[in-house]
């Protein structure tokens, strides 16, 4: 009986401790989110009164070829970021984990691009991609095909070029996170695998990957969510062009809110982005409930 009372007191105490942050969270996240949901159901211009129009904004979004193209581009982004940076980062982290001396210097070198602002990186790569003065000019002069035209100026290459730049800044961060996870895998497991005759590839497949799976899955989930929220690199490097080829939901939202005075439509686009992020989280929660070790 006494123990029950104590437990209840501890619970109340815990609630009291988290109450301030809970209130702050409600004020800064929950209330604006609810307001956002309301405005997505109105024709609000961003100022003044708003008229309730039901689901019209959502209907308009999914009937707009421009938004559908943006959505498709977000999915392309997701496919790119779910594969390319993970392949590079995992390989780099695994190789780095085998390095006995100077590993720290490598880690710093990988990580540095991540701390640079997107505006700086985007502007720098725009210069590098310049077909008349940048590296692409040199490659073109060397006779390498595909570099005679501006990579950011063609609908067929612009999105991939921006994804390449974003990946350039991102994979080092991912590699560092995965390396930390790798270091928590017991060396005895590798030793046992080696005794059993496992080669490097088999050690990676049967020791490394299972050992870092929770980190890997968590980063995969976060990368997927970020793929639906991408904005800075696209905005700095192409503003969604040319011909909408790099438009993503966030740039579409920005234009709707700030260029067209359609804040209601922008709110609907924002909630759609959140919905996709929510679906990803939902999938991971379901998998976890089904016993996946993630």
């Amino acid at each position: 009986m006494k123990s029950k009372k104590r437990k209840s007191r501890v619970k109340r105490g815990a609630w009291l401790f988290i109450l301030p942050i809970l209130l702050l969270h409600m004020l800064t996240i929950l209330v604006p989110a609810l307001v956002g949901i309301y405005f997505s159901l109105t024709d609000w211009s961003g100022f003044g009164p708003a008229t309730f129009i039901g689901l019209e904004n959502y209907k308009a979004l999914f009937e707009d070829p421009g938004f559908l193209q943006a959505l498709r581009n977000n999915f392309k982004w997701l496919v790119f970021f779910a594969t390319v940076p993970f392949s590079i980062a995992l390989t780099a982290a695994f190789l780095l984990s085998q390095v006995k001396r100077g590993g720290f210097a490598y880690r710093i070198a990988y990580f540095v691009p991540y701390v640079l602002p997107a505006v700086v990186i985007g502007s720098l790569w725009k210069f590098i991609f310049n077909p008349d003065s940048g590296i692409t000019r040199i490659l073109s002069d060397l006779g390498i095909p595909g570099f005679e035209k501006a990579l950011l100026g063609q609908p067929s290459t612009a999105l991939l070029s921006i994804a390449f730049v974003d990946n350039w800044h991102y994979w080092g961060f991912l590699a560092t996170i995965l390396l930390v996870a790798l270091q928590s895998v017991s060396p005895e497991l590798y030793e046992a695998a080696r005794i059993d005759g496992a080669n490097l590839r088999q050690q990676f497949r049967y020791v490394t990957v299972p050992g870092i799976r929770p980190t890997l899955v968590f980063m995969f989930m976060m990368t997927s969510i970020w793929s639906f929220l991408v904005f800075e690199y696209v905005w700095v490097m192409s503003q969604g062009g040319p011909a909408g080829s790099t438009e993503v939901m966030a740039t579409y939202l920005f234009k709707a809110a700030f260029r067209e005075f359609s804040a209601g439509l922008a709110a609907a686009a924002g909630l759609t982005m959140t919905m996709f992020a929510g679906i990803i989280i939902g999938v991971f929660l379901i998998l976890r409930k089904r016993g996946w070790e993630i």
Binding site: K126, F129, N130, P131, D132, K149, A150, L152, G153, Q154, S238, G241, P242
Partner: peptide, 13 residues
């Protein structure tokens, strides 16, 4: 000189 250049040229250029 081409649409790809138009989409990538700055005012200064």
């Amino acid at each position: 000189g081409g649409l790809d250049r138009y989409y990538t040229r700055t005012f200064q250029e």
